[in-house]
């Protein structure tokens, strides 16, 4: 007992170091294996108000580009509304539309903090639980997919972006219909990779890659990027597909959060599938 106390007295500083180090590392590795650590993220009140102040300064730097992007999107949308079509015949009766029901709703928001040079990059948005943002919702911008909501507080939300290790978004190569999982290797924020495409599929450089819409998070057909390079993986019948993202994540500001009204329904029916043993 005496020796034990002497041991603690002798190594007390080292033990303090180990204790603090274990705390820091355990938050890091808990996050790596289960992304659920809530208290170190910038969705907390103090750090997000600091970030808000910074954003109020830096948002003017790319105001011109953002205005242009929003204008282009406005033009595209304006072309679709009723007023821009010529009426070919007069409607006879008004009917309640039972063929179409709205499935997705979009919440617009601003990115107030982002990084692109780390292994795992997270963006902070200025919308949160009060606006109806929940964990697991998809996020996209007018040019392409951005990520999935990782955690939310009342007024802020943190997005796990495409530029993280385990993002695994279902994507599909538009012309051939080959599908795989989107991954990011941590090197360059302009390029990502798709895994799981069999190399007997014929793919072409420059083909559009869009979301598949299988997992309730993203609707089908959201832009992801273009095929940049194709190399066969040695020893496996698979392509290593490199894609160029259509969105430049280094200058991203305006994004939309996707709310899927039918998510619960799809999840419920998919949970009735009996679980197989995978491999």
């Amino acid at each position: 007992m005496h020796n034990l106390l002497a041991f603690f007295r002798r190594f007390r500083i080292f033990l303090l170091f180990v204790l603090l180090q274990v705390f820091a590392l355990s938050t890091y590795f808990t996050y790596l294996s289960f992304p659920r650590s809530q208290y170190l993220t910038s969705a907390s009140i103090v750090s997000s108000s600091i970030l808000e102040v910074r954003n109020s300064i830096t948002k003017y730097w790319s105001l011109g580009e953002n205005n242009k992007a929003l204008q282009e999107e406005n033009i595209r949308l304006r072309e679709k509304i009723k007023g821009s079509f010529i009426r070919l015949e007069n409607p006879l009766v008004r009917i309640k539309d039972t063929l179409f029901r709205q499935q997705y709703e979009y919440i617009s928001s601003l990115v107030i903090n982002s990084s692109t040079n780390k292994r795992n990059n997270f963006f902070t948005l200025n919308v949160g639980g009060l606006q109806g943002v929940k964990r697991g919702m998809g996020v996209f911008s007018d040019k392409g997919v951005v990520g999935v909501i990782h955690s939310t507080s009342r007024h802020y939300a943190v997005v796990k972006s495409v530029l993280t290790e385990h993002i695994n978004i279902d994507v599909i190569v538009e012309s051939t219909g080959a599908f795989g999982l989107l991954k990011w290797d941590g090197r360059n924020s302009k390029f990502g990779t798709i895994t799981g495409i069999s190399n007997d599929m014929k793919l072409k450089k420059g083909t559009r890659v869009v979301t598949r819409g299988g997992s309730t998070i993203f609707p089908k057909g959201l832009m992801v990027g273009y095929i940049e390079k194709l190399t066969p993986i040695e020893g496996k019948p698979l392509w290593d597909v490199t894609i160029r993202f259509s969105e430049d994540y280094r200058s991203i500001q305006n994004v939309y959060v996707i709310k899927n009204f039918l998510k619960e329904e799809q999840d419920r029916i998919e949970n009735t599938i009996p679980e197989d043993k995978v491999e």
Binding site: A24, L25, Y28, N113, V158
Partner: peptide
């Protein structure tokens, strides 16, 4: 520890800066 923790919580890095600063 306090310094690393504040940097980590602002820049979403989950304990990386804390650990290296310690």
């Amino acid at each position: 520890f306090v310094m690393g923790f504040s940097i980590d919580s602002i820049s979403n890095t989950f304990g990386l800066h804390t650990s290296s600063l310690l």
